[in-house]
Design a protein around this nucleic acid. Structure first.
Lengths: 158, 158
DNA sequence: TCCTAAACCTTTAAACTTGAAATATCTGCC
DNA sequence: GGCAGATATTTCAAGTTTAAAGGTTTAGGA
């Protein structure tokens, strides 16, 4: 009897294992997002999309282009327009004209926006720490590393 | 000089590690969701929320209550109403009256819905396998297990 | 200069999403 | 029976989201 193949190239069970990982990933994301959304609402009268845009801007005090924000957050271009509009009307964000290029403007947090975000970010970090408290730091670091390398394969490094 | 504390209870760096995990988790989810959404659209003229609802129903041939669907998918009640409405008008899903309780109905896939979903599910599994191909099966199983136990802590088992 | 293509952003329509309010029904207790 | 409270769903307004279409501006030739 000839030896049976021990494993085919990417057999059925492999894709099932990855599918299961994906489902768990998705459910974990939804769970955490749900908690963050609810607490942002009740404790800061803010929404998750606004928080996300402000988080992107917080890292770049000099400002970002609309397209940079949408690429960073992995959402569509038109989406960011509406969110920034509302943030501007709330005085948390400004659009600064660029001298060279009239198509674009640099979006950045106002002083008010920065301090509002700093407060929310501290709370947000503690919520995540609370929710993921059951994951050891070692496991968290391991998983982070694996997720990072996975993502690099699909986005041309990051 | 007295010895400095080596680590406080849940020190700063711990929450940073978990925060990083959360960000990576979120970005991985968005990446995969984006690909799935785009391919469902172009290859099946379907949307991700419809796919999700059909996936929930596919596991339960006898039908599900609206509230069961929304709990399973972790979305709001009102949300499911609209999605099911559209699936019904496309003939993919039916609402069956329950004899005992007139508040509720059992939602289930039609024959057409089942075969449409089976096709999409096969494609979906291969997309996930493709996207997560860089994650070894061993790593996938490890991460799944850790995400599962994390989730159980927050949802009263699952 | 003028033209074409590319880049960047906004607008639009349709769908999705939430949270709260409204509606309908059921259950248990008098 | 009749009513209060609980349960299940839908409706509603506001906001988010996408993909596609439209508008403006810039850049790079001919």
């Amino acid at each position: 009897m000839v030896s049976a193949p021990l494993s085919a190239a990417r057999p059925e069970s492999d894709s099932k294992a990855r599918l299961r990982l994906w489902i768990r990933l998705l459910r974990a994301s939804r769970l955490i997002e749900g908690v963050a959304r609810e607490r942002l609402k009740t404790q800061f009268d803010a929404t998750l999309p606004r928080f996300d845009v402000m988080a992107a801007l917080y890292r770049k005090p000099d400002g970002m282009l609309m397209s940079e924000i949408s690429r960073f957050l992995m959402v569509s271009n038109g989406n960011v327009t509406g969110i920034v509009d509302r943030l501007v009307s709330d005085g948390l964000v400004v659009r600064a004209q660029r001298n060279g290029d009239r198509r674009t403007s640099f979006i950045s947090l106002t002083r008010k926006g920065r301090s509002a975000f700093a407060e929310m970010a501290a709370a947000h970090e503690s919520w995540v720490d609370e929710l993921l408290g059951g994951v050891s730091v070692r496991d968290a670091e391991q998983m982070s590393a694996k997720l990072k390398s996975f993502r690099s394969d699909w986005e041309g490094e990051a």
